[in-house]
């Protein structure tokens, strides 16, 4: 069975939901701790949402230097699939594995809502089970989710098909070009502000639309 690591930092909140989503999708979640100096041989890594290190300095700025992140960064550059959700996306931007940054919502309010998205790239190992252009609804909850990058970077992301998901109907945080998620050039590293791991079971989510992020990576790993 494919083993997917879920990193817990001090202040992580959604590590349990991420682990549960992996289980529901049919994989084996492997808990990783921020001080770990081994990735325990996992096949992929999820950096979950929350407020790592209290969001002090900038969201993700201190987590980026956690011992486990040195390994994640090295392995991600070598092709390890990594999904950063919310705070995980912020961490990935701080590592510069992903371009741009997440800034304070333009409304200055923390936003918590069921958010409609369009999956714009299905060529990543985290989105291959979606149909191109598929619309999904998953929870979104952030205070600093405004995606910013310079115009050249934004144009490059669009031209290379690296915008993974876009906000529909409402842009909840002022993200440039309605960007909700992006990937690195190789596609193995994906960052996403909304929370697919909260939408994997009808009892607790607004939908089960988020599950395909986790089935996608599992089917990729089984094929590999």
């Amino acid at each position: 069975m494919a083993r997917i690591g879920v990193v817990t930092f001090p202040g992580s909140l959604d590590d349990r939901d991420a682990a549960r989503a992996i289980t529901v999708a049919g994989g084996e979640p492997v808990p990783l701790w921020h001080k770990d100096r081994s990735l325990a041989g996992v096949d992929a890594v999820v950096l979950p949402g929350g407020f790592s290190y209290g969001d002090y300095l900038r969201c993700g700025a201190i987590a980026r230097f956690a011992p486990v992140m040195e390994l994640v960064i090295d392995e991600a550059r070598a092709g390890l699939p990594v999904l950063g959700i919310c705070n995980g996306f912020q961490i990935l931007c701080e590592t510069h594995l992903l371009p741009g940054a997440l800034t304070r919502n333009d409304s200055l309010h923390f936003v918590c809502r069921d958010q409609r998205l369009r999956i714009d790239s299905t060529s990543t190992p985290w989105t291959s089970d979606y149909e191109p252009g598929q619309e999904i609804v998953v929870p979104l909850k952030n205070g600093e989710g405004g995606y910013v990058a310079d115009e050249r970077t934004l144009d490059g992301l669009e031209a290379e098909g690296r915008v993974v998901a876009r906000y529909l109907e409402v842009n909840p945080n002022g993200s440039r070009r309605d960007i909700a998620g992006i990937s690195n050039a190789a596609g193995n590293v994906v960052g996403l502000m909304p929370h697919p791991e909260h939408a994997v079971e009808p009892l607790t989510g607004p939908s089960t639309d988020g599950l395909a992020f986790f089935t996608s990576i599992l089917s990729r790993l089984v094929r590999a």
Binding site: T103, S107, L108
Partner: peptide, 13 residues
């Protein structure tokens, strides 16, 4: 400081 081209909603508030 935020770069000049980056929106600063806190400063605006």
């Amino acid at each position: 400081m935020l770069k000049p081209e980056i929106l600063d909603p806190q400063g605006q508030a």
